[in-house]
Amino acid sequence: MENPVELDTQWLGRLLKKHYEDDEPADIVSVNVEPAVPKGENYTSIVMRVKMNIVTHSGCKKTFSLIVKSAKTSKEAAEALKGFSVFRNETKMFITMLKQMEALMEEFGDKRDTLWATLYGYEPYSIMVLEDLKEKNFALIDRKGWQDLDHSLLVLRSLGRYHAMTKILIGRGLIDDSDKGHYFAGLNTPVKSGLFNGAIHMLSKALINKLGSWPAGWEDIGKRIQKQKDVLCNTLEELYINYDKKFEALNHGDLWSSNMMFKKMEYTNIPIAVKFVDYQLPHLSSFMWDVTYFMYSSVKPSIRRPNVDVLLKAYHESLSDNLKFFK
């Protein structure tokens, strides 16, 4: 048997260093700035795509793209977000919790992609610079549309992995009550009251008057909902505050179609990877906030209703498997 070749590890280290140095930008040739999302698609931030044509140290010409996210500073935005430090929340998520999850993945040799973009840098707490996921073939889907079974299963399996990692960090004391956060649906604030009262009013009006796609036969339910606005708001607050701690996880907080990007198999509509974006409403509570919010805001009703058990099983299996993996 031949003896293994004795490797010069110092030489290998120099090769790696040179490789990464050669790819580093030496000069910026041109810069183009454009909106990264359509007007009205982001309520709390201004999101721009910055494309730079660069020359590397090795002389290669490359195009590099970044996402620059800045907080809205208008009086209207400040009033609407009063009491919710969404930009501070998201920055904290990236520099603490998500970094801890990356360290957890490294500790256990988890080579799967992260479920979030890379943060390149930030100015506290007004600007964040992130990798452009579009460069890795991730794309948003129509937020007004519904997700099919393939997309929904991928999201719930990924969410199970995300929640499992937060559960491990909670168990290690790396996420505690100081990271509880605030979920707008669970707090008795003017923002929550205005939003929910308005939404319930519009829903009951649609049911009573058969607006949009609502057929006849829902009028009585619409009237009953209209009378129970305060009860519904109070119940949400109670569910947020009182829950079994053994089911506690750090929720994303706004997990619906507009806050996720998918990579698809080439020439198909089959999703093979997902990234969650907009970590502005993280909060400690029952994991069912994320699960329920996603299933009822984003999954096509004709898909969700006959497949509720299939969808929940996918989430549960992923949660259980990842809890075992990271123990």
Rank of each mutant, 00 (worst) to 15 (best):
K92E: 14
A80F: 00
L81W: 00
K82P: 03
E107V: 13
K61H: 14
S85C: 02
S65C: 04
L66S: 15
F94I: 08
L119H: 01
M93I: 14
L115A: 10
D113W: 07
C60L: 13
S70I: 09
G83R: 00
G109D: 07
L119A: 12
K99F: 12
K75W: 09
F84K: 00
I95N: 06
A80L: 03
W116N: 11
E131N: 03
D110M: 09
K92F: 15
Y120P: 03
K111P: 06
D113M: 11
Y122I: 06
S65R: 01
F108V: 13
S65N: 03
T91S: 12
M105C: 12
A80Q: 01
I67K: 03
K69C: 08
K62Q: 12
K61V: 11
F64C: 03
A117S: 06
M105V: 08
D113N: 09
K111E: 11
A71S: 04
R112Q: 08
E79V: 07
W116C: 12
M105E: 10
Y120N: 07
M105F: 07
L104C: 09
S74Q: 07
I67F: 04
F87T: 01
A80R: 01
T118G: 06
A71W: 02
S85W: 03
K62C: 05
A71Q: 02
K99H: 14
A117C: 08
S58C: 15
V129K: 02
V129M: 00
M128K: 11
A80P: 02
E131R: 00
I67A: 05
E79T: 13
S85K: 02
E107W: 14
W116V: 06
T91Q: 06
E90Q: 02
Q100M: 15
P124D: 09
M105N: 10
Y125G: 06
G59N: 07
M93T: 05
I127H: 15
K62A: 06
A78Y: 00
E106Y: 15
T96G: 10
M101W: 04
H57T: 13
A80G: 07
T118D: 04
F64Q: 09
G83I: 01
V129N: 15
N89E: 09
A77N: 03
E79I: 04
H57R: 10
M101P: 02
V86K: 00
A77V: 11
F84E: 02
M128E: 06
A78V: 05
E107C: 14
M93V: 05
V68R: 07
S65G: 01
G109P: 15
R112L: 04
A78K: 08
E76T: 01
F87A: 00
L81V: 04
A103L: 13
K92V: 13
T118K: 08
C60Q: 08
L66F: 14
